[in-house]
Design a protein around this nucleic acid. Sequence first.
DNA 1: GGCCTTACTGAAAACGTTTTTCAGTAACTC
DNA 2: GAGTTACTGAAAAACGTTTTCAGTAAGGCC
Lengths: 152, 152
Amino acid sequence: MGRWLPNREGLKMDFLLQELRRAGYRITDARRAIVQALVNASRPLNPQELYEAARVQHPRVGLVTVYRTLEALLELGMVQKVHGEQGCVGYVYTGRGHRHVAWCRACGRAFIFEGQEDLSSLEQSLERTLHFRVEGHLLQLTGLCAECQART
Amino acid sequence: MGRWLPNREGLKMDFLLQELRRAGYRITDARRAIVQALVNASRPLNPQELYEAARVQHPRVGLVTVYRTLEALLELGMVQKVHGEQGCVGYVYTGRGHRHVAWCRACGRAFIFEGQEDLSSLEQSLERTLHFRVEGHLLQLTGLCAECQART
DNA sequence: GGCCTTACTGAAAACGTTTTTCAGTAACTC
DNA sequence: GAGTTACTGAAAAACGTTTTCAGTAAGGCC
Ligand SMILES: [Mn+2]
Ligand SMILES: [Mn+2]
Ligand SMILES: [Zn+2]
Ligand SMILES: [Zn+2]
């Protein structure tokens, strides 16, 4: 069964489990372990990495359940994909709402922030020139986090 | 060998072949067919689709060569991946330089435009609050193109 | 608490996509 | 035209993801 120490990420974890519960999913040891591994991760994890991290708490967990849990969390808008140069580098906890990712190219950590950027002039420009009506966007930033700048 | 009718996309095709040549690649019938299929496509194509399109001009082409050609063009910054909700939906010709994609959710066509958006206030905000130094970004818009709006 | 329903689980197999291997071919250089 | 070697396509291998299925346990109910 395992014990779940209250920590800084405990709140995120409780929130995620609550959201799963609200959506009709059952709370199982496998899901607890996967969700805990996800909120404790400092950088985006792919299914294989998340699987390995979850096995620390729940060694009997299967990789399939990781895929299924990620699917559910993605559906609920609780996690987002992070895109690298060659494809998807992993999934990261973002919580509810319109969020963006700033991804450090040196340490690989993801920093989540609310989408407060202003793309309205770009959207108007597209509307005028192409008559394209913008409905949504995918925006991800890359660069260097504070610590990795200092390390240089 | 096949004939290459001069058309609107002929310029793009010549440019791509030229760029491949400049980078030291040899120009082969397979590459010609793949590049032609790519510039003639009105929407992002995945390797399988590009393979089928290229076979019209060069039926003996192999899917492997499509992968290798896409890798080269991506390396040269001539094509970009287009990201959908569930992952990469395909590759699209963008040409040299910082370009963005507006992707129509109805017809699937991609509209390429130069990156003239202003993210500086967002970047400054990230610099101030997180001390994150932004170096680059991935921005893709989704919505409805002019024709698909009219069709509603 | 115990019972019942059924969502969930993990192992295995199946699957589709991408990469590697390799011997033959042909593009480019001289 | 001859020589070098990058490129080709078929096949096999490797990879990541999804499906299948019989056993398990979560949550609702009394
Ligand atoms: Mn936004
Ligand atoms: Mn831009
Ligand atoms: Zn960093
Ligand atoms: Zn459209």
